[in-house]
Design a protein around this nucleic acid. Sequence first.
DNA 1: TATTAATATAAGAAATACTTATGGATAAAC
DNA 2: GTTTATCCATAAGTATTTCTTATATTAATA
Lengths: 312, 312
Amino acid sequence: MDKRLRLISHLRCFESAARFQSYSQAANELSVTQAAISQQIRNLEQQLGVKLFKREGRSMLLTQQGQTLAEYVRQAFTTLSSGFDKIMVEPEEGVLTVTASLSFSSVWLVPRLWKFSSQYPNISVRAVASAQLEELRYSDIDVAVRQADEIKADVYQEQLIVDPVYPYCSPSLVEEMDLHSPERLAECWLVEAIDPGRFSWKTWFDLAGVKMQRDLISWIEVTTWEMGLNAVMSGHGVCLASASMASELVNKGLLVRPFDIAIEPGLKFTLLYDKTSPKLARINIFADWLRAELSQGDSSPINLARPATESL
Amino acid sequence: MDKRLRLISHLRCFESAARFQSYSQAANELSVTQAAISQQIRNLEQQLGVKLFKREGRSMLLTQQGQTLAEYVRQAFTTLSSGFDKIMVEPEEGVLTVTASLSFSSVWLVPRLWKFSSQYPNISVRAVASAQLEELRYSDIDVAVRQADEIKADVYQEQLIVDPVYPYCSPSLVEEMDLHSPERLAECWLVEAIDPGRFSWKTWFDLAGVKMQRDLISWIEVTTWEMGLNAVMSGHGVCLASASMASELVNKGLLVRPFDIAIEPGLKFTLLYDKTSPKLARINIFADWLRAELSQGDSSPINLARPATESL
DNA sequence: TATTAATATAAGAAATACTTATGGATAAAC
DNA sequence: GTTTATCCATAAGTATTTCTTATATTAATA
């Protein structure tokens, strides 16, 4: 066996740094520090006796030899990934890791997981909350559910629902503030995201045909849909939220929807997973369940066209 | 980047064990213990969630998946080795590691290295003595000089000399024992290797036309040519040795050759190196010097046909 | 049946990989 | 031109991984 293959563990750092031409970005991709990358590559260069990078100002450019090796390493890694793909096919039973926004995870997914688990006791679902979409190919994450009008990802995407966005508040507030017309909302504290995009109270008031005077209203600013729901559940004002996310709380009598006026097209929920994942059998089971569960809520499957940033 | 590539460092153990279908042999190849191999492969299997080996009695057979992965790993390693080959080309100056038998190293090579070094001050030669031929492809060793009639190796081989084997003893012993005919040798202590093959005193006496009575002779048994030479240099008997190995000592007046009767074809010296080595420029310089230096000694370049084990 | 050969496993030791802190060089901003 | 920001380099220390040693288990062989 070629003794140079002892250096194989250094090649991950090398390949990443070569691709980015940047140690910092490689460090970020590999979730280590820049110093680790620097030292690994220094070690690799010393052991091979070859300069792979040359510094130009703040850039690390590949030498000719570095370029040559990078190409071979990339090819070898592709071969290995293919090999892994070939052997890793998992059965239906096992662990499945699902990632979604904090709001969807805590407000929708986690409160319903007992349903999935009782129906599929051999599949153990692990919910991972994240602010951004996580890497799905060749990673620990199997499925993602995100809210955005458009998602850039190189894996399979499927629109689950387009969830209308209504105002929600506690039942007691309806009586307290006599919320029988949209105009009455201006007397309440209104909960709004810091950057709501098209899911703002202004949008809603326009739909309701009410002129909103922003500076006359008391505002509560939140960073996630979940925070908004939690705030109004304890009697603090009125928030906008998507029907599905609020449904569990409405069913439990903790929240009510004072007006049947919705911002539509609503919040688009997208399912993402890697079609080549070894856990595909398991993912398909979860995806079917998810589709059924979401289709039972208050939602309307309407096509979207306009882009927006992902909601909270 | 494919997160499974974090497992890349385990793949050396896997590939070796897969090739040998034996953890012990893999351990031997990689110079680690069997336990290390066992644990690495267990870890790899756990992380991949795939059984790669199945135990059958005392054999570790590859599973179908193991076979598949082994093929991909082998291919990836070949690609990496090619990449390393492509970038690793060294200049003439630098370190060169030469391996030879203990006898050749200490009796011939090391006493002459000053010549090489003064002629090529930019090349630093490191002599490594070893009882067996060391791996030359992709290893720390650059050149080997071995004594054997036939060598199995997958690298370039070149016959340097075929060195006749004569008796040698100290000058004082010639006077002391009045060594003017071969028959007189029977009165001396004879130094012989434990397993001399065709370089035995019996062979020599046959050539000299003397009938040897083994049980009437006093024997000294040694394990290396070097030991034999050291013994007779201090006045202890007579040994057989190849002309080139003895030449330095003869030139210094420490040994003499009492009879000009040689066992021929003599000891075959072979030069071995990897034609694809990145240090080829450096190797060629050393090889040229070696050829010249050896051709200045008492030797005859005669073709060999018969196999024998490597001499000491 | 006893011995040998081969792998499995646990615990500890050794080596490697990584982090933190700091410095140096260069590019960008003011 | 100076200051700030960005990026990599390096040393020292920390954390993790890899390896060794000791022992157990299993199967093959004599």
